[in-house]
Design a protein around this nucleic acid. Structure first.
Lengths: 248, 248
DNA sequence: TTATTGCCGATTGTCGCCAATCGTCAATCA
DNA sequence: TGATTGACGATTGGCGACAATCGGCAATAA
């Protein structure tokens, strides 16, 4: 039979859809880091049974976005400086591999174009100067390199890290990007990949992530220290009390 | 109160225990790759409800050990040459990072000793010559390096990869290790880490995994080709039929 | 007054039931 | 005879109910 233009519709289980929706809420910051959530509450809001929501929550826990304390509750993960260090060192190692792979296979039809496109988007975003757009195009370029590596497990692993990094950036009010610096940092990486120089591409990519990560981790460490000092001062007068039931 | 010698017993949900048991069965090869399994069957064998088993199966699916076809069934993953390539390239990138981190922090108390211990175990296993023991000690050394990196996410990620690699090796009847070669490959890595040379340790570790991975992937590719040829010959006379209901 | 113990609400853990969907095979019709 | 369609068994998808466990509070006793 001739292939009519009937779309092949995807059959996504509700529990997967629930996981996707929750993930989006967390990554977007709608559900703040550290927030305590309950299965019943989510089930009620989404119009699903607890068991279904539960499966979705477990999935997000596996992705590192939630933590579950048995018989007690779920909590949206909140990231420490140590977490930031872990995220960026891992990301650096993975992107190094991706950059090497892409550089080695840059001859494949279309690959060079796709990479150039992503880079152009970043450049134009930087010229406009809108911080949010720049960050998004930045993520986009990195993601393009990952996708071009044609490596399923690497792609999945990277997606997990990226989610957590987004949460981290959102929750820590991270430093704004300097447009010119962003371009300067990414340009040589893209150039090395396009030139097919795997060694150089990998090294540059690794270095980029490590410096960026260190910068953010230092920032967060400073924030943590300030918070700890403030807490210490208030600790004697104000008894600590668990922050339960905070959502409307 | 004085800390009496009452053990702090762990409260593990049954679903986690079920996942652990199933994982062990799969990694050990008791449930062969490609095997089709059903929730009802597992639930019956373990004396649990389907919902509980289901949660465990989903966990293993997230770990990459099972695949779920909606409304149809669960299948133990079976690895292709492409999978082997993915596993070893990723492992190489992650172990490189781990080796660098450990080398940079080899001064921490106890670290050098723990590394030396793992290495000694590998050496003595090689001298005995028992293939299974050598492979186990090999995994043990790599695992020790990972653990010494003090990097939670790296450790978790590595555990996932190692599981899959074990399944792969088990299912592909991989080539036996040559005792002398095993020692020769690992000795310089350990030496570089102990010397605190992060750069060298990382490079050696990476190289070790890449060569090992290429060797195994090539082997598997050859097996695949043979299997494809054999299938082609039999395809005309023997109509393909799905292999359902195979367990006793 | 103060430390201990028992109680209670809240939340997750587990279970059995019914619905939705898949692959297969037989019944049907040109 | 051959292709299409309907029906059937098997399996996962989703749900509500009950059990286990947790944290905190109040009753109790020294």
């Amino acid at each position: 039979m001739a292939p009519l233009s009937i779309p092949r519709l995807v059959k996504t289980p509700i529990e997967t859809q629930a996981a996707t929706a929750l993930r989006a809420s967390i990554v977007a910051g709608d559900i703040p880091a550290g927030q305590r959530i309950t299965e019943i509450e989510i089930a009620g809001q989404m119009g699903l049974s607890r068991a279904t929501v539960r499966a979705a929550l477990h999935q997000l826990a596996r992705e590192g976005l939630l933590t579950l304390v048995p018989y007690t509750g779920w909590t949206v993960m909140s990231l420490s400086a140590q977490d930031a260090w872990e995220l960026y060192t891992l990301r650096s190692a993975i992107e190094r591999l991706a950059a090497q792979l892409v550089a080695a296979a840059i001859g494949d039809p279309g690959k060079a174009d796709r990479l150039r496109e992503a880079y152009e988007r970043l450049v134009s975003a930087c010229k406009r100067g809108h911080a949010g757009r720049i960050a998004e195009a930045d993520f986009g370029l990195h993601q393009a390199i990952i996708a071009l590596a044609d490596h399923r497990r690497l792609t999945e692993q990277y997606a997990l890290l990226e989610q957590q990094i987004r949460v981290y950036i959102r929750s820590s009010d991270a430093l704004l990007p300097n447009p010119n610096m962003v371009i300067a940092q990414h340009k040589p990486i893209v150039a090395a990949i396009l030139a097919g120089d795997a060694e150089e591409a990998g090294a540059l990519s690794e270095q980029h992530n490590l410096t960026e990560g260190r910068r953010l981790a230092d920032h967060l460490r400073a924030v943590e220290r300030r918070a700890a000092d403030a807490q210490q001062g208030a600790a004697l007068s104000q008894p600590s009390r668990q922050n339960r039931r905070a959502r409307a």
